[in-house]
Amino acid sequence: MKRKHSTLYGVMAQFDNPSALVAAARETYEAGYRQINGYSPFPIEELSEAIGFKRSVLPIIVLIGGIIGALGGFFMQYWMEVVDYPINVGGKPFNSWPAFIPITFECTVLVAAFSAVLGMLALNKLPQPYHPVFNAPNFALATRDSFFLVIESKDPKFDHDEAVRFLRSLEAREVVDVEL
């Protein structure tokens, strides 16, 4: 019973509180839908789990960034002070590694922080000026006090009428189509 919905992004249900959204998201996931997403005015820990979102790779990116920062910071100093331009400062060894630690630490934090921010934006595909969900009539309330659940049309199980009927059964305040 699969139909092509070339102009439909999905169907969206609106809820009044976080508990209703999380409960609805769980039921939708259990009903077999996989291409679903929740939208809320603030982070809800239970929600990402309810829509079946697995662990993010972000911490690994940040760890790698931190390691690059640490090695880069230390060996930058090592190369400059030992290899490229060795000068005798107060009789200290060229490789005065304890004196290189503060800058090594700062470089670690700097690169790790950049990895966290840019990694988060890249994984979220932001900046993204246009997205179909903004077409939904009440969606401006997603940054105020409303909670939304979307079943996307690319879901293998997606059937427009069936999805609408299913979302209505979840005590949604309103169910609307979201155009591409």
């Binding site: 603030f42 809800i44 979102f53």
Partner: peptide, 28 residues
Amino acid sequence: AMGWRGSARHWHRYETAYLLLAGLATPL
């Protein structure tokens, strides 16, 4: 806002990034 829309997947990564930044800013 760069197209922020409060998606659950975005929030999840956002919270991770924010927590990691806090963890980095503390020793900093």
